[in-house]
């Protein structure tokens, strides 16, 4: 699974943002910033994704969709909350329909500030997330190894 670090695939979902951060996420993929040169690809399929980029403060109707997408992503996975709305609700915090922050619905690993977040900051956020993804992967690999050796030890004794 060492390929994860070299070619992470991202999934982007707009959970009640104003679109500003979303078009900046897309701008990261296009020629000026071109994150594809690092192997980062925007995929539409949660089952293929390693990094979940989410924007906006999440409203009541989106809550289930976000949970659903998060649960469909395979482990290890990281969540990057983009923009100030995703961190706290931002300018929409007082709106009646806004939950106020992605971390109220799913666990978040990295917060990217800004309204709208700049492409450079989004790329920086994803790079930070990759470090966390690597840690999670090692932890999973370690746990799997411990389990395997415990199973072997148990198998030999019986």
């Amino acid at each position: 699974m060492a390929f994860l670090k070299r070619s992470p695939w991202i999934l982007h979902y707009d959970a009640s943002s104003c679109n500003g951060c979303d078009i900046e996420v897309l701008a990261c993929l296009t020629p000026l910033y071109d994150v594809e040169r690092f192997g980062i690809i925007n995929t539409g399929n949660p089952k293929h994704a390693d990094v979940f980029l989410i924007t906006g403060g999440i409203n009541e109707q989106n809550r289930e969709v976000v949970k659903n997408i998060y649960e469909q992503m395979p482990e290890p996975k990281v969540v990057v909350a983009i923009g100030v709305c995703a961190a706290s609700g931002g300018i929409f915090r007082e709106c009646y329909n806004i939950v106020g922050g992605v971390d109220k619905v799913i666990p978040v690993d990295v917060y990217v500030p800004g309204c709208a977040a700049r492409p450079e900051m989004i790329i920086d956020g994803v790079v930070t997330a990759l470090g966390i993804l690597e840690e999670k992967r090692e932890k999973m690999a370690g746990a799997a190894q411990t389990k395997e050796s415990a199973r072997r030890a148990a198998g030999e004794s019986t």
């Binding site: 009640s16 943002s17 403060g57 409203n59 109707q61 989106n62 709106c95 009646y96 329909n97 806004i98």
Partner: peptide, 14 residues
């Protein structure tokens, strides 16, 4: 529709 409804019209009162 309704996935991005935030209720911005009401914010004029705040």
């Amino acid at each position: 529709i309704g996935y991005i409804h935030r209720g911005l019209e009401q914010l004029v009162q705040k």
